[in-house]
């Protein structure tokens, strides 16, 4: 057992975990934030995607102890003051989810993609979402939502 101190969605946490505990299990079981999903548990599907120090990573393929001192953002940390994040708004408006299982990871990946590339082309969107699988939508509306997200984020930036 070892101690891990980290920040999740701006809040400091300290947990005692087994050395082999995965970050996703710390988030779900210890911090009780169950918005982050475990899909394949083999680093393929991206349902467990969170941000670690501002970058999208698969939390099923990082040990909790590797995140010692890190700043983690999960899907629960995106909405501010009861208002959905622009990527969440876009997913709602574009009907970019059906069963919703992949959605938290998908949204975290899209947020990561748009941070590095605020106006991606279709090809860049496909390449940027290669780490996330959706078994319902066929991705068409997800790609629409990424473009909508980019618009909303640009508007938000201008109005600041």
């Amino acid at each position: 057992m070892a101690k891990v101190e980290l920040t999740i969605n701006g809040k400091n946490h300290c947990f005692e975990v087994e050395d082999r505990t995965l970050l996703v299990n710390l988030i779900r079981d210890h911090a009780q934030l169950t918005g982050t999903h475990v899909g394949c548990d083999t680093s393929q599907c991206g349902a467990c995607t969170v941000h670690m120090n501002g970058e999208a990573i698969k939390s099923c393929t990082v040990f909790a102890l590797q995140a010692n001192g890190a700043q983690i953002t999960t899907i629960e940390g995106l909405a501010k003051n009861g208002k959905l994040h622009p990527v969440q708004q876009a997913f709602t408006q574009c009907h970019a989810l059906q069963c919703g299982f992949c959605t938290p990871g998908m949204i975290m990946s899209v947020a990561g993609l748009l941070k590095n590339n605020p106006k991606p082309t279709d090809e860049q969107i496909y390449h940027g979402l290669e780490g996330n699988l959706c078994r319902c939508t066929g991705y068409v509306n997800i790609v629409k939502a990424v473009k909508k997200s980019a618009e909303l984020l640009a508007t938000q930036k201008q109005s600041r």
């Binding site: 991206g46 670690m52 970058e55 999208a56 698969k58 990946s109 990561g112 993609l113 780490g131």
Partner: peptide
């Protein structure tokens, strides 16, 4: 290589 999440690690 891999996907964005893999390239970040």
């Amino acid at each position: 290589i891999g996907d964005p999440q893999v390239r970040n690690r």
